[in-house]
Design a protein around this nucleic acid. Sequence first.
DNA 1: CAGTGGTCTAGACCACAGT
DNA 2: CTGTGGTCTAGACCACTGA
Lengths: 239, 239
Amino acid sequence: MPNGFNQLPQYRQLYETLKKGIHEGLYAPGDLLPSENELSRTYGLTRPTIRQGLGELVNEGYIRKIRGKGSVVKRRKAGIGILNIKGTTDSLPTGKLRTLVVDAPVLKPWPAALKEELSATDLTHKCVYLSRLRLIELQPIFYEETLLPNRDLPGFLTQNLNDRSLFGLLAEDYGIRVTGGAQRIRAIGAKGKIQELLQVTNGTPILRLDKSYETNRPYYHFYTSIWCRTDAYYLEGAL
Amino acid sequence: MPNGFNQLPQYRQLYETLKKGIHEGLYAPGDLLPSENELSRTYGLTRPTIRQGLGELVNEGYIRKIRGKGSVVKRRKAGIGILNIKGTTDSLPTGKLRTLVVDAPVLKPWPAALKEELSATDLTHKCVYLSRLRLIELQPIFYEETLLPNRDLPGFLTQNLNDRSLFGLLAEDYGIRVTGGAQRIRAIGAKGKIQELLQVTNGTPILRLDKSYETNRPYYHFYTSIWCRTDAYYLEGAL
DNA sequence: CAGTGGTCTAGACCACAGT
DNA sequence: CTGTGGTCTAGACCACTGA
């Protein structure tokens, strides 16, 4: 029987299931996850497959494995989880994050600073630009500008990106999944547009992240710059 | 025959070998690594073992895997690689990094701010404190303070930590290896001791990282805070 | 088409934690 | 001692790339 949209590999499904269990408190910090052998029996998968799923949880900082003991759930992350690859929202106080579009998607030429990083294929297409402001408890926390090549993105310019995950949109509507990337971080002083949007005084220390994402679509990269105030919330990530 | 100190698992040896090859230019950016099947033949290991080794290279941002094509070596990282777990020095311009001890190791009581994070066993021991300044091209770039529980660390207080990797010392002399951890990042304004050590003007935006490390020694954690100026060098890491 | 990496199975032996 | 995670073998089928 054709199973249609069962695209997610089994170890990934396990990962999602366990992550959900952790988020919902089924497994509390300090608790042990079921052992690998037990998970193996429960889900009808072999241990290497189970281990692949648990490995993702380790990478994302959800659990720690201790030989002879088990997989221990780590204490809840308190900061903003944009250091790791997953979408931003993964580890935030639930429902408290608002996302407001500042500049709706438009076509632009590529900025000169990025041109040397771009692949030849991406350079032949124009660039989709959009920017959004993210608020926690109605307080602006960070502002993000995204640039992506306008290649096979039908209807993207008319998408509504308020309170919507960009990663989710790319995955669901265009089959683009992020597979890797790199980031650079600097501390700068707030000024101009950034200072206004984040509602801080001129010169306030601000975190700036420049990220480049690799995707499952060959030679398709995209780029995000983030400006983040860290007086109330800090950035947190696994090592 | 007893093989003595062959503690390193085979996938880890493969990882070290390939990483060395990348650093030394045997594999240049854009090049393909030998395929998994070829590595399997070359090293006499099965493919899952090879894949485990390559997986580490992916996590550290050295390579990218493309299905149907191979493992592509990524372009060299340019910034300071202290975002990932590996020692700091891994991706710096070779030989340009100097490390100067500011405060040699001394015993101290634990700072109050850390007490709630500490395990009960760690609290029963005093805390070893040390701090170091790191310079690139004779320019101070970041300052780091380290706190670790004084448990089974014979002779640590008299170690010379100038131009020496702390991670290497812990591993070689005490068998302590870092297995994971978490970090928090904020942007702050430079002042006081930090401002003097980093030789910047008062209020200059500075990056502050607070890291906590987990180790292979049960319940043994340690902590590092880093203050980093990012005007000349930025921090870089894989996603 | 042959070769690549992605996923998965079904076992094995080991070092280590807790009892 | 039993059960845990850590490492490893020896295969299998798949989706995808490039010629």
